[in-house]
């Protein structure tokens, strides 16, 4: 670490010479009130997660779905995503503090990719919206690494034995976006129509993109 570099407390600039954690002023204020109110019993911490889950669908994974649909439809865009996902995602106007260092991982017949953050719960929310409650849970974080196939089957994802599962561990520096396999029978679909097949879980790798039947029913 260089001593000459000034320590920055601006959360936006990802200064990794600075090795301790940071929050924005707003994050600090929210955590302050939340911890005091929980401690005094004025709010129930479990209910806070439920409230977020109930109301939060609109930050939803629509941004990421647009990225995936474009990757499925536009060979040049896919190439740019592979080269530099951060820039290619920003082309669509999606940037954000925690979506800044992105890499795509592509599902094929041979490989299924799944994302976890074992240390904390690093998550590209500008692309995927808010993380689901289970993503932050200790059991998901440990079991995704030790027994990914079992975790997937709990999400009702059964993969052929010959499909290899690769688990990617998100860090403060690198976030992953899974590009699910494009469902059969979608030739000639518009990006807009394709995006409706892309679920949040399919971009974390705990789900597959919806089939044509699932959206038409």
């Amino acid at each position: 670490m260089s001593d000459s570099k000034k320590h920055s407390h601006n959360h936006d600039d990802h200064d990794h010479d600075d090795d301790h954690s940071h929050w924005s002023d707003m994050e600090l204020k929210v955590k302050t009130l939340e911890s005091l109110l929980v401690e005094k019993g004025y709010v129930d911490p479990a209910s806070l997660d439920v409230i977020v889950e109930t109301y939060e669908t609109k930050v939803g994974p629509r941004n990421g779905a647009a990225v995936v649909a474009k990757a499925w439809s536009d060979e040049d865009y896919l190439h740019r995503l592979r080269q530099n996902a951060t820039d290619a995602i920003a082309e669509l106007g999606f940037t954000g503090r925690q979506g800044e260092h992105m890499q795509i991982v592509e599902n094929t017949d041979d490989v299924h990719n799944m994302v976890v953050c074992t240390l904390c719960s690093c998550y590209p929310w500008s692309v995927l919206g808010l993380p689901p409650v289970w993503y932050k849970s200790a059991p998901y974080r440990s079991r995704a690494v030790s027994e990914p196939r079992a975790v997937l089957s709990e999400f009702n994802v059964e993969l052929p034995k010959e499909t290899k599962i690769t688990v990617w561990d998100s860090t403060a520096e690198m976030r992953y976006l899974v590009i699910p396999k494009r469902p059969d029978g979608t030739q000639g679909w518009s990006e807009e129509k394709l995006a409706k097949l892309v679920t949040r879980d399919s971009m974390i790798g705990t789900g597959l993109a919806l089939s044509v039947d699932e959206v038409s029913s």
Partner: peptide, 9 residues
């Protein structure tokens, strides 16, 4: 969303 949830809570 956390600030929102605190108020509802």
């Amino acid at each position: 969303a956390q600030a929102f949830a605190l108020v509802i809570g």
